[in-house]
Design a protein around this nucleic acid. Structure first.
Lengths: 125, 125
DNA sequence: GTCGTTGCAAAGCGTTTGCAGCCTA
DNA sequence: TAGGCTGCAAACGCTTTGCAACGAC
């Protein structure tokens, strides 16, 4: 029996209002705007339960803490800014990569990550 | 001035003989076959120096420990078999993804990972 | 002999877990 | 009131770093 605590409400709101995938630390900071005493453990516990619930989606980046965004989005990929470490959604996907897989290999999924500098950091430089 | 220690020689040999990218722990185990007292810190320190040296290349997999393989290969990507957890090289790259980046974003690099089942695991099933 | 390198142990860092008290239903 | 949930702090697993001893040159 799951309870609708103010912490969970605050975290849901923070993620819903974000325009990009957030890291646990970013979620913590956003949550603390509403609940100053919010603990990091609560963030992690809620991330897990929201994932199990299917409300949240994991964005895995090599060598970086995971990011999380609302589930149910259209198939898309991500842009990782090396300067500010933020992650942005990329709307379209170049398509299928079935012909890339070696002969006899069964392709089930793919992941594409772009690296560079986001607009904000480009103009700052 | 870099020294050619038996540890470094053993690690180089282990990586050179491997037919796939190795994790630090795998490198440690392989190295201990030759030098039983080998420490994990030495493995990490040598991984770093071999990377700086350009002899070693990092293979980053989301949600997995990094792996390392001999550098100098042509630009390529990887196929990760979900069944046996092995990683395979993919020879060709679909090309540039510059048009995918949002307007104003500066694209510098990309990473493409294919997931599925390798030939060996397909025939086994 | 120098000083780069090593092994050990401790420290970081992000994440998870144990626990006593809190608060939602 | 019951028991899921919270904050704190300690525990984790992996990687990095401090340090005294070692060994390549």
């Amino acid at each position: 029996m799951q309870r609708n605590t103010q912490q969970r409400r605050a975290l849901r709101k923070a993620i819903r209002l974000a325009d990009r995938p957030l890291s646990p630390q970013e979620i913590l900071q956003a949550g603390r705007d509403q609940i100053p005493g919010l603990g990091i453990a609560t963030v992690y516990r809620n991330i897990r339960s929201l994932l199990d619930e299917g409300w949240l989606q994991e964005v895995e980046l090599p060598g970086k803490p995971n990011r999380y965004e609302l589930a149910g989005k259209h198939h898309h990929h991500h842009f990782h800014c090396k300067a500010c470490d933020r992650v942005y959604d990329i709307d379209n996907c170049p398509g299928s990569f079935t012909d890339l897989a070696p002969h006899g290999f069964q392709l089930e999924a793919h992941d594409l990550i772009l690296y560079g500098t986001c607009r904000g950091c480009v103009t700052e430089a």
